[in-house]
Design a protein around this nucleic acid. Structure first.
Lengths: 219, 219
DNA sequence: ACCTGAACACCGTTCAAGT
DNA sequence: ACCTGAACACCGTTCAAGT
């Protein structure tokens, strides 16, 4: 008779814990990401987690930084407008793949290495393109506001879509009270995520146009 | 001997519970907003709360809607650009007063009456100003993305400021690795919230300019 | 009707113990 | 060194009981 099966030793590492945490959050949502469930995902008992990570706070910081690590870092040798557009689309895609990330980012106080490196790359692109310090500050604030704000709206929209369709939502509310929202739903403008997604490209070009004007104004 | 002091009856109501929940979250943060602490804030035992509210979910939905109720609703009889600017500033101020609101909005699925009425008012202003359905969809998506995204950044920035200053943060990281971020910190661009706040007005005007161009393009 | 106390199934985390 | 079991102080919530 062999010894009873037991989780093999040295099978766990900080990186693996973080990877499994991301996987669990993607699959089941942030609410299910508990130390106990994470341990299950790693095939280990809850207390084993604490040998690779100081606690839940560190895990949350780490999975946020893991999302930033997936995002394209803009390059100084390319045209700044295309590089920042590519970065912006990449942010939106990453936040779409990990819908829990945005809510988490907001509450975290300790930015990780990938987070800092991403900011650094964006600032470097703007400064290298000749944006003054003032212009860079405004430009980065406006671009990031648009990108993260758009992702925020998509996250909220996706959550409403989960149970009832937008149609049902609108029908459930007083049509006399909210005629414009009804118009939007019936005209299929908000019907699916695709129509809304089209606004991202439109908005991105408008914001990049605005950055060009900023570059000139704060020279 | 009088009867032992007891919390007077009929002192509680749904509105009072919601008001106290907002007050508690403002003062101590979302993490402290538990049913037990909320009961204490209302001068009552935990289980009394459940007589006025179905559970914590309803409380969270209600305090988000309470924040929307504080925000200026744009009017159709004013110039659309000024009305939307005033709305945008009011959103930013409200989210500044209640830093927990943004994180909560994101996860909620049931928009309240004040939330819906706010959306309706914005859509009405745009449509009345002659924006086509397409133009309205893009315009509202872009403007809201900017406003909420900016508030998101301010919330994050405020959280970092709480413990260490930005200076300390930058000194703690590798200067050779993040020279542009160091430049920003030393040049005082991110020094305080005020410098960053200036970007809001700059960005708002740029976005409103963009809406005017949208109005023409999607006529 | 409104409020309460005790209990249940969860959480993150500490600490002493096993291999 | 890595993993575990039992225990502690918390959650939200149910249910039966008091006034």
């Amino acid at each position: 008779m062999s010894t009873p099966t037991r989780a093999p030793r040295n099978t766990l590492s900080r990186d693996l814990v973080v990877e499994r945490a991301v996987r669990l959050a993607d699959r089941e949502g942030l609410g299910v990401l508990t130390i106990r469930a994470l341990a299950g995902e790693c095939g280990v008992k809850p207390m084993a987690i604490y040998h690779h990570v100081s606690g839940k706070e560190e895990i949350l910081d780490a999975i946020v930084d893991a999302v930033f690590a997936e995002i394209y870092a803009p390059q100084v040798d390319g045209p700044w407008r295309e590089e920042l557009a590519r970065r912006s689309r990449s942010v939106r895609e990453a936040l779409g793949r990990h819908p829990w990330a945005l809510a988490l980012m907001e509450a975290r106080r300790n930015p990780g290495l990938a987070t800092l490196a991403g900011h650094e790359a964006c600032l470097e692109v703007l400064r290298s393109a000749g944006f003054s310090l003032q212009a860079t500050a405004h430009a980065y604030a406006v671009l990031d506001a648009f990108v993260y704000g758009f992702a925020l709206q998509e996250t909220m929209l996706a959550q409403v879509d989960l149970d009832g369709s937008v149609d049902e939502l609108v029908e459930s509310m007083d049509l006399a009270r909210f005629p414009r929202m009804h118009e939007f739903a019936t005209e299929h403008v908000l019907q699916d995520g695709y129509a809304f997604a089209a606004s991202f490209e439109v908005g991105l070009e408008l914001v990049l146009d605005a950055l060009e004007r900023l570059q000139a104004a704060f020279a």
